[in-house]
Simulated scan of single mutants.
Amino acid sequence: MLQSKIPATIITGFLGAGKTTIIRSMLQNADGKKIALIINEFGDLGVDGDVLKGCGAENCTEEDIVELTNGCICCTVADDFIPTMEKLLEREERPDHIVIETSGLALPQPLVAAFNWPEIKSQVTVDGVVTVVDSAAVSDGRFAHDHDKLDAQRQEDESLDHESPLEELFEDQLTAADMIVLNKADLIDEIKLDQVKASVQNSIERKPAFVVARNGIVPSDVLLGLGVGSEDDLATRKSHHEKHHHDEHSDDDHEHHHHHHDHDEFESFVVELGVVKKPEEFCVGLSELIQEYGILRLKGIVHVPDKAMRLVIQAVGARVDQHFDRLWNADEEKSSKLVVIGLHDIEQQKIASAIKGLI
């Protein structure tokens, strides 16, 4: 029965882990498979969709890329994701494989559960959940886990009965995984990489496969074809929220209960700019602003006046990466837009003004 269904791979991971880079590489090396891609962008501008549309993979055309921009996929399963899947399955030429990239802020569990809905279960199976980890960030102590320290804090503070939302979210993404990609391994040495793997493995009870990736390169035959059927294994993938409440929810109720994972902790906003004449200096300035204002993630498309191609800017932490991805289309407005993601108290106006001051 599994073989008669279309396999779907869910790719999740925290902000800046490198999901888009891995998917771009996968599309360019898919060995002729026709891949449909569903992207759940967090923010007001579907930057990742634009980036992936520029990858040039013949087997994944623009009509095969669907963006869900109405909010976190785990909170809009019934209203957004299910209808999108149904439309995809109604196509005359159905895909060989479906790849779903979640927002960095999404819980994978409700999405996996959605594949048990009757409209979906008879036609699609979850080939596997792949969680991408920024190894360098974990090695630096960001989103790492120290249970002993947390237990000590609980002893000292009776009001502290749960971990921070960021840490819970990271652990929930790891718990859902059938494969964990330790990405950005090129930025740390082997000893630190071994420590990261041990830290990640010790934070979860399940035993997923581990793959080490450098520069976001993972062969498509490694990511695709896991054949897990993850939707039939929900019991071992419970999120912190489910564990805390010990409730048995029906699939229809599942996404409603997950509104409690607090997206109010995060905010995103778009900064629209003019042309950027000196991109190198601009990126240096962005790096400084990221550190000054505690920006979690920054990404966007930039118009450089003397260049025929769009400049893509991606930043996590103080690292700012840039590359030209494709030519501007004839009917496309040449403009510069950046999405900024930070915690709820991020100073939007100051940051927007500071970014505009860089050009």
Rank of each mutant, 00 (worst) to 15 (best):
M1D: 15
L2T: 11
S4A: 13
S4D: 15
I6E: 01
A8Q: 07
L15F: 10
T21I: 07
I23E: 02
Q28E: 05
N29F: 14
N29R: 15
A30K: 04
G32C: 10
G32V: 06
G32P: 12
K33P: 02
K33E: 07
A36F: 08
I38D: 05
F42L: 00
D44E: 15
D50C: 12
E58V: 11
C60H: 05
T61H: 07
E63G: 11
D64A: 10
E67I: 09
T76A: 04
F81R: 03
I82G: 02
P83D: 02
T84R: 12
E86T: 14
R91V: 08
R94F: 02
P95A: 05
I98A: 00
T102H: 15
S103A: 08
G104F: 03
G104A: 05
L105K: 01
L105P: 00
I120L: 11
I120M: 10
V124R: 03
V129F: 13
D148H: 03
D148M: 04
K149N: 07
D151M: 11
D151Y: 11
Q153G: 01
Q153N: 05
R154F: 03
Q155N: 13
E156G: 08
E158I: 06
P165W: 12
L166N: 08
L169S: 09
T175N: 10
A177H: 06
I180K: 06
N183G: 09
I188D: 02
D189M: 09
Q195P: 00
V200S: 03
N202C: 00
F210D: 08
R214K: 06
N215Q: 09
V218H: 05
G225W: 11
D233N: 14
H241M: 14
E242G: 14
K243V: 06
D247R: 13
D247G: 14
D251Y: 15
D252T: 11
D252H: 08
E255W: 14
H260M: 11
H261T: 12
D262P: 11
H263R: 06
E265D: 12
F266N: 06
S268Y: 07
V270F: 05
V270G: 02
G274V: 07
E281I: 15
F282V: 03
F282G: 03
C283L: 15
V284L: 11
L289W: 01
G294F: 04
G294R: 03
R297H: 13
R297L: 09
L298C: 13
G300M: 04
P305A: 05
D306P: 03
K307A: 05
R319P: 01
D321C: 13
D331V: 02
K337T: 12
H344I: 09
D345M: 00
Q348P: 01
K350A: 10
K350V: 04
S353W: 03
S353T: 07
A354M: 03
I355R: 02
